[in-house]
């Protein structure tokens, strides 16, 4: 069996709230203990709505946030973020807002040179050659290098963001809503570019988005997050077509599709539970049409659903 590109065991994150200098605060669980495996060359899509913990998960994967519990292994070796020169070459990140991820007072060249200098200690000629190579790969014109971030459109800036991630020669790239700030016509350009780069450089992607259709179009497998927990994992083609978890079904039914009539009174109304006061059982029970007594008292674990799928539900579809 091949070694997974990324393996996450029992990873969780809690944030203290209301803590003062002399006052201990309470803990809010942003991500419940989570297991994930991503194989080399695979694209794992992660979907969920705001507040489900997808950005917390992404930031822990690249070491921008320290996990509360759990381990992270890349290519079978634990990720050590204390030495960025190693970890940054293993896993990189592409940000949601392409413009604000670029320093407004640096030219693109200055921004691009930093990782090459810090991570590889390249000299000026080697840096210029490498930047030209990567710029060519993401089809950006070399004259862009001497401009400042505000001179770019969203789509161009996102190409620059992708180029910066590629400079570090990572094996894995975490894409955190990479196209949600872009117009649809540009969104398709960037998605196709990502697919081409993956082929060319043999990359592994974690693609995080709230847009179900986009995730489905780019992913091999999809994990659905709700209230800090993975509620369903499966092949992209199957998860939304034949959902096992009622929340996945609600998501799939809510996505606006041409020709599908609007529900008169939408099902699954109601909202996320209060993170300061999480419910005892299944977090989705209050919105779930199939919830029974057992759902409100004990939380369902992520269990195998016959085929290559997992779902956390006592009464799966």
């Amino acid at each position: 069996m091949t070694t997974p590109a990324l393996e996450v065991r029992n990873l969780s994150k809690s944030f203290p709230v209301g803590r003062g200098l002399f006052r201990a605060g309470r803990l809010v669980r942003a991500l419940m203990p989570t297991d994930l495996v991503v194989m080399p060359g695979e694209t794992l899509g992660i979907v969920g709505e705001s507040g489900c913990g997808k950005t917390t998960l992404a930031r822990m994967l690249v070491g921008l946030l320290a996990p509360t519990t759990g381990t992270l292994e890349i290519g079978g070796k634990p990720l050590d973020t204390s030495d960025r020169r190693v970890s940054s070459q293993q896993i990189q990140y592409v940000f949601q807002d392409p413009i604000s991820s670029l320093n407004p007072r640096k030219t693109i060249r200055q921004t691009m040179e930093t990782p090459l200098r810090v991570l590889f200690g390249m000299d000026a000629a080697a840096r210029a050659a490498r930047i030209a190579e990567v710029f060519d790969a993401v089809s950006l014109r070399p004259e862009f290098l001497d401009r400042y971030p505000h001179e770019f459109s969203g789509g161009q800036a996102q190409r620059i963001g992708i180029a910066r991630a590629l400079l570090a020669k990572p094996d894995i790239i975490v894409l955190d809503e990479p196209v949600s700030a872009l117009d649809v016509s540009v969104q398709a350009q960037v998605l196709n570019l990502l697919a081409a780069l993956k082929e060319e450089f043999g990359l592994t992607y974690l693609f995080i988005s709230h847009d179900l259709a986009v995730v489905e179009a780019v992913s091999d497998r999809i994990a659905v997050l709700y209230f800090g927990s993975v509620v369903e994992v499966g092949p992209a083609a199957a998860v939304f077509a034949r959902p096992h978890h009622p929340y996945t079904r609600l998501l799939a039914d809510s996505a606006p599709v041409v020709g599908r009539p609007l529900a008169r009174r939408a099902d699954g109304a109601g909202e996320l539970p209060d993170p300061l006061d999480p419910p005892a059982g299944c977090a989705f029970a209050r919105r779930c049409p199939k919830a029974r007594e057992r759902c409100r008292s004990d939380a369902p674990p992520l269990a195998t659903m016959g085929d290559d799928r997992l779902a956390a539900c006592h009464f799966p579809d």
């Binding site: 649809v184 016509s185 398709a188 350009q189 697919a195 259709a213 986009v214 489905e216 780019v218």
Partner: peptide, 23 residues
């Protein structure tokens, strides 16, 4: 026509999208 084609629709599975070149 091309703008509609750009938008992936749920249920289509993994695929390449048609993009509109340029801005």
């Amino acid at each position: 026509r091309r703008l509609i084609d750009c938008v992936p629709e749920l249920g289509g599975g993994k695929r390449a999208l048609t993009a509109i070149p340029g801005l």
